[in-house]
Simulated scan of single mutants.
Amino acid sequence: MRIHNFKVGERGLNRFFGPLEAKIMDILWTRPGSSIREVQTALEQDKDVNFNTVMTVMNRLVDKELLRKSQKGRTSLYHPVQSREEFMNDQSKELSHELVDEFGALALNHMLDALDEADAGLIERLEQKIKQWKKDSD
């Protein structure tokens, strides 16, 4: 699943979604199988969002294949297609590939520069990944 509008200046889920979409996905990752009314109720803690707006956004997320809809009697229940972790993994992988395809070594150099701010555990995992990659390519 590919998100077409990555927003560089945003944080978290807002990099991939509009503000209401991000809140809805966050709710559904926490409570999969929720109805529109349940999501609307959870959103009311932030601000007053009407039922039709929530329904429209949720159905658009179904159209984008980010949610799937099932029926329980007359109530539609919504489930994320992927876990939050799977989604973030897929998006970061796609973004990394696009950056390397577009900018090559320049992107990799900037990624390595960003390691100055990384913890030692991340650097250790990267070193192990490079060792494995070299071993596999021999």
Results as ranks from 00 to 15, higher is better:
L106N: 02
F103I: 04
V81Y: 05
K69C: 12
Q91H: 04
R68Q: 08
G121K: 06
K129Q: 05
Q91C: 09
V57H: 04
P32F: 07
E21C: 00
L13E: 06
A105C: 08
A42N: 06
L108C: 12
L108Y: 05
V57P: 11
E124L: 14
G121N: 06
R37L: 11
E102F: 14
L95I: 11
L106S: 01
D138S: 06
I123M: 12
K72H: 11
L66C: 04
R74T: 06
N109P: 07
L66A: 05
N50W: 10
E44K: 10
I36A: 15
R15M: 10
D26S: 14
S92Y: 15
G121D: 11
K47A: 15
D48A: 07
T56V: 05
D119L: 06
D116Q: 13
P19A: 00
L95Y: 12
Y78W: 02
F87V: 03
K72L: 13
F17H: 06
E38M: 03
T53I: 10
N89V: 15
N5F: 14
N50G: 00
V49Q: 07
Y78Q: 01
N14W: 03
E86M: 15
A107I: 10
D116G: 13
T30F: 12
E44L: 09
I36Y: 05
E38G: 03
S92P: 02
E127Q: 11
D26R: 11
G9Q: 11
L43H: 12
D113G: 07
V57G: 06
D63V: 08
R74V: 08
S76I: 03
V39H: 09
E44S: 09
F6K: 08
T75C: 02
I3F: 00
V62Q: 06
L108D: 01
D113Q: 14
L99C: 10
S76K: 13
L43V: 05
H4G: 10
I27F: 06
S92F: 15
P19Q: 00
A22R: 00
N59M: 07
D101K: 09
W29Y: 00
I3M: 09
E44T: 03
G104D: 05
S96A: 15
V54K: 01
G33W: 04
V8S: 05
E98C: 06
Q45L: 08
E21I: 00
P32S: 01
Q82A: 08
L115Y: 14
A105R: 06
D48T: 13
G104T: 05
F87M: 02
I3A: 02
